[in-house]
Design a binder for these strands. Structure first.
Length: 746
DNA sequence: CTACTGATTTTTTTT
DNA sequence: AAATCAGTAG
């Protein structure tokens, strides 16, 4: 038996050496799940003699894929696992489709649309249908379409299943949206999965080929798979059934993206012969951290697989709770404390992380770090590849690859300005729609001198010049090295000059530097064969996530959203903004399942910490330029008193002494069940000061005219309380003194 | 067609 | 507080 198994504990070892067949590893946080996964692969190769070429491993991020490969190299020796297929569902599907999508009657040179492209396309659809964006939020429609796709519901099925007026509209948009995607030879994120399942179901012989090749299938973060991914797993493992999945239903935090916890909870029903292995020993955190995290997760809804985590790491320091006066003071505390931790040598900067619910929260943190000269790295926010100038240049690049990409075409039709205004743009779209042609093809008609084009001579010549530019680019697209192509575009389109024209010198320089950075990234692709450079570059640019780019040992503090933090670990973790409305987020507080997910999100955050955990909230928070008083997160109330070091009272914050009086760390403020919605009666803010809010998110209220509604948020505006309430039709903002809202109990 | 200005809106979370 | 939008003047 190979010696690399020596280091595993019995449960891990049982998982790694499990006999071929469906295996479900339920792994608590820090239980060595990644280790089990890598060792399992190593075991397959080394001990069972499986050819790496026959193994498919699906990870949740590209970063995890990279790390998996690196660990395998360490275990097996460099190059041994080279033929292994590792990646996210999306990148693997992109790779497979690049080769086999022709079986679906589509070209290999498809473009992948990101969320920004998707939004532009759906706007075009709404525009085509003469629908007002104000009345029909494009994002909402897109979200409906996306979840339909994640459940593998086609436009036709969607129309059949959903008959109410709103859904009828969505159905129409969905159908047209798909038509336009196809016309542009583009796939959106969801399509990568959907088309792959189509490929398999429509071409059994092809599926067989994949089944023959991938005799061993491993899936990480199984709790976050959606219907489409589940279907792919079922399809691929249908014959061999050597399926090895690893996950933790307590860490399921991607419901909003279509993740379906049932996939993990029903694994044993799906595969009756499945072996289930629980990993409950935690190697990451101290007992204090583990107890605190478990107090939060166990206060939630019952789960079928209840794990009891334990550790031999010792008690460690108590978890700290900190109340800041506002977000700036909260950030200052974090920055000071991290400075102290680095100063005492307890942790280097890269062992410290700040985690928050929304990207917007990073700003205050960032400012505090900048003021102190603390080095940091932020993942998320405005991403590099989403910056306007970067996307503009990428649009040209995409057009060089595939000129039918209409979203990119419209994006640069008049950038830099070339005298093609909005009017012309509309007319071009209308005309192309009438001809039933992609925009580029319509432009070619025009270039060819069709007599029926609806443009004046002047507009025509501007359009024809643009068409010639595209022709030129798409010709060079397939025959030039990537950087040469980029330079050619930049010169030909005079991008630098355009930037100088549009922005003041400093900003123009900034944006130009971003483009140089993009060119710099492109140089990494020059060693690929010429025909693969452009496609690989475009694909990776769209599929690479921010979290993939975090540096590991950079000696910088990491600032990251709770979602992205999944799978990572740090010596010291600061969770900030643990307040009602933020965690749980106000958009999640009216739905039981979503509320549970918020709880798990906190659990995920807490269990990232190895030795020190800080839970922070602010007394007052400014959002949208307005200050509101905040309430500590209801989840904090689930932590028994004694587990956590109570906050040091801040002189600036008004006394709320009643809050820390009994069983929970926040005192016994609530009588409602811990996983239920807070009830108005259970929030005795004993003697509300004249300036205090009396409505809280989650409350049900009645209004004389609008009827029943749900409080989304409440804040003080010029001494009056402004309550945002979601009524049956829409959200409304009401002034409490004026609207006379009536609270409804239960 | 572009460029300016005041008004309005924006924040979940992500491959 | 910042970004985007709508309307208008040039």
């Amino acid at each position: 038996m190979s010696n690399f198994l020596q280091s595993l504990n019995p449960a891990q070892r049982r998982a790694v050496e499990a006999k071929s067949g469906p295996v479900l590893v339920l792994a608590g946080p820090g239980s060595g799940k990644t280790r089990v996964l890598t060792h399992r692969i190593a075991y397959l190769i080394e001990t069972l003699g499986v050819d790496p070429f026959n193994i498919l491993a699906v990870t949740f991020t590209n970063r995890a894929a990279r790390e998996l490969k690196e660990r395998l190299e360490v275990l097996l020796g460099a190059g041994r696992a080279h033929a292994l297929a590792v990646g996210t569902f999306h990148s693997l599907c992109a790779r497979f489709l690049r080769r086999d999508i022709v079986h679906l009657g589509r070209g290999r040179d498809f473009i992948i649309y990101d969320s920004d492209d998707q939004l532009r396309l759906i706007r075009r659809v709404l525009n085509e249908f003469k629908l007002d964006e104000k009345r029909h939020n494009p994002r909402t429609i897109l979200a409906r379409i996306s979840s339909a796709k994640n459940e593998l519901v086609s436009p036709a099925e969607f129309a059949r299943l959903n008959r109410d007026p709103l859904d009828e509209l969505v159905a129409r948009c969905y159908l047209r949206y798909q038509e336009l995607l196809r016309e542009a030879n583009a796939l959106d994120f969801d399509d990568l999965l959907v088309e792959m399942t189509h490929l398999f179901s429509q071409h059994p012989e092809l599926l067989e080929r994949y089944q023959d090749r991938f005799t061993h299938l491993l899936v990480d973060e199984y709790q976050d798979t959606n219907r489409a991914q589940y279907t792919l797993i079922r399809q691929l493992s249908a014959r061999q059934r050597d399926l090895f999945v690893v996950g933790d239903d307590d860490q399921s935090i991607y419901l909003f993206r279509g993740a379906d916890v049932r996939n993990i909870r029903q694994f044993e029903q799906d595969f009756p012969e499945a072996q289930v292995i629980l990993l409950e020993q935690n190697y990451r955190s101290t007992q204090s951290i583990l107890d605190t995290a478990q107090a939060v997760i166990n206060a939630g809804a019952k789960r079928p697989h209840h794990k009891r985590l334990w550790t031999e790491n010792g008690t460690g320091s108590q978890v700290s709770l900190h109340e800041g006066y506002d977000q700036d003071e909260e950030a200052s505390f974090v920055a000071d404390e991290i400075t102290r931790l680095i100063g005492t040598g307890e942790f280097p900067a890269h062992e410290c992380a700040v985690m928050y619910r929304t990207n917007a929260q990073s700003r205050a943190i960032e400012e505090a770090f900048v003021r102190r000269g603390l080095p940091y790295q932020i993942s998320g926010g405005t991403r590099f590849y989403e910056r306007k100038e970067v996307k503009d240049l990428l649009a040209y690049l995409r057009l060089a690859y595939n000129p039918f990409d209409s979203v990119s075409l419209l994006r640069v039709l008049n950038w830099p300005a070339r005298g093609i205004g909005e009017r012309t743009e509309q007319e071009l779209q209308r005309w192309a729609g009438e001809l039933g042609m992609p925009l580029f093809q319509a432009l070619r008609e025009l270039e060819g001198g069709t007599p029926h084009a609806p443009f004046t001579a002047r507009t025509s010549s501007a359009l024809i010049a643009f068409t010639q530019l595209l022709d030129e680019l798409s010709k060079s697209g397939h025959e030039l090295p990537l950087t040469t192509l980029l330079d050619r575009i930049t010169d030909r389109v005079a991008i630098r000059e355009a930037l100088k024209r549009e922005y003041d010198p400093l900003e123009a320089e900034d944006r130009w530097n971003n483009l140089l950075e993009l060119r710099n990234v492109a140089t990494n692709y020059l060693n690929l064969p010429l025909e693969a450079q452009l496609s690989t570059f475009l694909e990776e640019v769209t599929l690479v996530a921010d979290v993939d780019k975090l540096e590991q040992n950079s000696d910088k503090v990491t600032c990251i959203t709770l979602h992205q933090a999944k799978g990572l670990e740090y010596g010291a973790v600061f969770l900030v903004g643990l307040e009602e409305g933020l965690l749980p987020h106000s958009r999640s507080s009216d739905d039981r399942d979503q509320l549970e997910e918020e709880r798990r999100l906190l659990y995920v955050g807490m269990t990232r910490a190895r030795r020190r955990l800080y839970l922070c909230y602010a007394f007052k928070r400014t959002s949208f330029g307005r200050a509101n008083l905040s309430t500590p997160s209801r989840f904090l109330a689930d932590i028994p008193r004694g587990l956590v070091k109570p906050p040091v009272r801040r002189p600036t914050a008004p006394a709320q002494s009643s809050m820390f009086s009994s069983r929970s760390v926040l005192g016994d403020r609530r009588s409602s069940p811990s996983d239920g919605l807070p009830r108005s009666s259970s929030r005795p803010r004993a003697a509300p000061p004249p300036e205090a809010i009396s409505f809280f998110s989650g409350q049900r209220v009645r209004h004389a005219v609008f009827g029943e509604g749900l409080v989304i948020s409440s804040k003080l505006v010029d001494g009056d309380e402004e309550v945002t309430v979601r009524f049956a039709d829409r959200e409304r903002r009401l002034l409490a003194t004026f609207a006379r809202l009536e609270r409804i109990e239960g």
